[in-house]
């Protein structure tokens, strides 16, 4: 399918989703749906570096929080509309990704992963000690009840949901565009064998930096609307463990080979968690995600998508 056509289909699916949800008339649906979509963006972003290039980022929460705190910073300094904040967050988190990559990617992949693990801890330390953005106490963001534009008025939660839906479309079309391009080929060679990739003329360092920047930027974008969603942002919630673990678990469980895997994984796990948070505790929830992650990497290394395609292929004569 042509890329522009694919983008149109994505937008159409998004529009239908929104229309159906509007029809249900439940604010909760939008509140829960926002989180699921947020995870779709995070999982897709993680997969650009993790699934395509084979570099594991443990610091998704850090990039997400950078986006959220960019919003807080500008909320205090100079209030801007959210779409603009999303763009700014993309720049900040993208630069963070580039910097991390530049410092560690010339070394073995494991060092990059370790550095990202530590990045979350340290950024959190910085934020906790930075009073301007609320420090350890956190910061309030007062959001309007509703948004009016072009003579239409919609509840603010719906507005946030629509923004996140747009980010999902951006993330997925970006991921698919990469897969189909020369860049996607290059990423796959990095995942398979970097030495051979260099010998074939692939500028591996530059490509890895593109991946860390893109992936970081998308994660930052997912974090930008978060303060408006939650209303009161604390370091502990912005740097929440659930972001780090879910953005790895969802692609791993869905399948890391293409954009479909993270989408399936995030929709599935995200929805389960939204249901389970209401019925069981959120800690049990996270434990289940952790156990699923370990189980899947051991038993189904190609995720659900890989498992299904294998089954289908086996059925063919």
């Amino acid at each position: 399918m042509r890329s522009w056509l694919f983008t149109l289909v994505c937008i159409a699916v998004g529009a239908i989703t929104y229309a159906v949800m509007r029809g249900v008339h439940s604010e909760y649906l939008f509140v829960a749906g926002y989180v699921v979509l947020e995870f779709v963006v995070l999982a897709t972003a993680w997969n650009i570096l993790g699934g395509y290039c084979g570099y594991v980022n443990f610091g998704s929460a850090a990039f997400f929080a950078l986006g959220a705190y960019t919003t807080i910073f500008f909320h205090k300094a100079y209030p801007l509309p959210i779409p603009l904040l999303i763009a700014l967050s993309a720049v900040v988190s993208g630069i963070a990704g580039l910097g991390m990559g530049y410092l560690t990617l010339r070394l073995r992949g494991a060092f990059f992963s370790i550095a990202t693990l530590a990045l979350a801890v340290v950024l959190q330390t910085l934020v906790v000690n930075w009073d301007y953005v609320g420090g350890s106490r956190g910061a309030y963001v007062i959001r309007p009840q509703a948004l009016s534009a072009f003579g239409l008025t919609i509840p603010y939660v719906e507005y946030l949901f629509l923004l996140m839906l747009a980010l999902v479309v951006i993330a997925i079309t970006t991921a698919r565009l990469i897969e189909r391009s020369r860049l996607g080929f290059g990423f796959a060679t990095i995942r398979d064998d970097e030495l051979a990739a260099e010998a074939s003329g692939v500028p591996t360092l530059r490509l890895k930096l593109i991946a860390t920047t893109l992936s970081g930027a998308l994660m930052g974008m997912a974090g930008a609307p978060f303060p408006y969603y939650i209303g009161y942002l604390q370091p502990a919630s912005a740097f929440g463990l659930e972001y780090a673990v879910n953005s790895i678990a969802m692609p791993m469980i869905g399948g890391t080979g293409s954009w479909i895997g993270p989408l399936v994984g995030a929709l599935l796990l995200g929805t389960i968690q939204q249901v389970a948070t209401v019925t069981i505790s959120s800690a049990v929830n996270l434990l289940i995600v952790g156990l699923l992650l370990v189980a899947f990497v051991i038993i189904a290394p190609n995720g659900l998508v890989g498992f299904v395609t294998q089954r289908l292929r086996a059925r063919e004569p």
Binding site: G54, V56, A110, S113, M252, T256, L293, I298
Partner: peptide
């Protein structure tokens, strides 16, 4: 490289 790390993370 990929899944082993995810395993320990899990």
């Amino acid at each position: 490289a990929l899944r082993g790390l995810a395993f320990f993370f899990g």
